[in-house]
Design a protein around this nucleic acid. Structure first.
Length: 309
RNA sequence: GGGGAGGUUCCCGAGCGGCCAAAGGGGGCAGACUGUAAAUCUGUUGGUUAUUCCUUCGAAGGUUCGAAUCCUUCUCUCCCCA
């Protein structure tokens, strides 16, 4: 039985932009009686340890972690799989009498875990590939006009330049014969789900400094060696795992002939800061978040205690 | 000392008499987000009493109905010859 059926399951969400200090907080506040479910779309991959800022093995050994290292970096993953697996993890954790903490930076995962998945079907790789080729051969304009015909509602919501969403909408149409917009999308949290949602935030400048330091540290810890070993596995920029910040920059700079370690670090910092901003934008749209600075451990502790009592 | 190129809005960079508050890119800010989401995409970015007026294209002066665009002098930067 998925936890959806149960009422008022204790569940803590811990979200924050990259570099805000989630892992440190886990260590200090959730080491006793809690288990962590990773909600970070890159930390699910094996071999992406340093670049994805995965928690130290030592921490993982002390606090049980779910959904870390479950796939190889060339394998596809999706929100759907996340929600299903996270539901299972929640069950498992509760059955052990522990409290689940969903922690990570992928707001999209949080959102759909909280509200439940849309009714639209999961992606079909074959159909997607077919549609991608159609869009390539006939062009973006053609694709958009086609969507306007088969699914005007989606067309109105999707910008004509948004290849990604355009492709998905056409994919759903091709695969099911139904417009994407005909599938219901949940707008309220799932039944019985009343999590404590802690949003971690920090001053912009401070966050940027932390990101710079962290990138420096990643390189010291062997980010280049990690990339080398991925390349030895024949990693390409198309691998889902390689689209993470800290990896994509390697391919970008090599492709542009602009490679240097300094340029690499600078680009990672820049992309991380921009990503942090997008994360905040997304997360601000989720209701019921209690925003805290990770330094305020006592207040957060009090918040958690109060929620669990 | 001589010759050449150039100084444009936060940055890079286009514009080279009116259609220029000034293309494009970057960055900033704001936003979207229906199974790839560390992805993908959008808006905005001199001030304002806001379909108007003001300030802005190194500085000062000039030509012109009108200048970032033409002329003069000054100033700074880069390159070449000494």
């Amino acid at each position: 039985m998925p936890p959806v059926k149960r009422n008022n399951i204790p569940l803590i969400f811990l979200f924050g932009p990259t570099g805000v200090g989630k892992t440190a907080l886990l260590d200090s506040l959730f080491s006793e009686g809690f288990s962590v479910i990773n909600a970070d779309s890159k930390q699910i991959y094996r071999h992406l340890d340093i670049g994805s800022a995965k928690p130290e093995p030592e921490l993982v050994a002390r606090i049980p972690h779910y959904l870390v290292d479950i796939l190889d970096p060339w394998e596809d993953f999706s929100v759907g799989q996340f929600v299903h697996r996270a539901d299972e993890a929640v069950e498992d954790i509760l059955s052990q009498g522990r409290i689940p903490v969903i922690s990570g930076g992928t707001a999209f995962y949080f959102k759909h875990f909280l509200y439940g998945l849309p009714e639209s079907p999961k992606s079909s790789p074959e159909v997607r590939f077919f549609v991608q080729r159609e869009v390539e051969t006939h062009g973006q304009e053609w694709a958009y006009r086609r969507l306007e015909e088969v699914d005007p509602l989606s067309a109105a919501k999707i910008h004509r330049n948004d290849t990604y969403r355009l492709t998905r909408a056409l994919e759903v149409w091709e695969a099911t014969g139904r417009p994407l917009s005909s599938y219901r999308v949940p707008s309220v949290p799932r039944e019985g789900l009343k999590p404590l949602i802690i949003g971690l935030t920090r001053d912009k400048e401070e966050l940027a400094e932390r990101i710079e330091l962290r990138v420096e540290l990643m390189v010291e810890q062997g980010l280049m060696e990690e990339i080398d070993s991925l390349l030895a596995m024949k990693a390409t920029p198309e691998w889902p795992g390689m689209q993470g910040i800290g990896y994509q920059e390697y391919f970008t700079l090599k492709r542009e002939g602009q490679w240097s370690l300094d340029a690499f670090k600078a680009l990672i910092v820049k992309n991380s800061i921009k990503y942090a901003k997008r994360q905040m934008t997304f997360f601000r749209s989720i209701e019921g978040v209690t925003w805290m600075n990770p330094e305020e451990t006592e207040s957060i502790q009090a918040l958690v205690d109060d929620y669990l009592s």
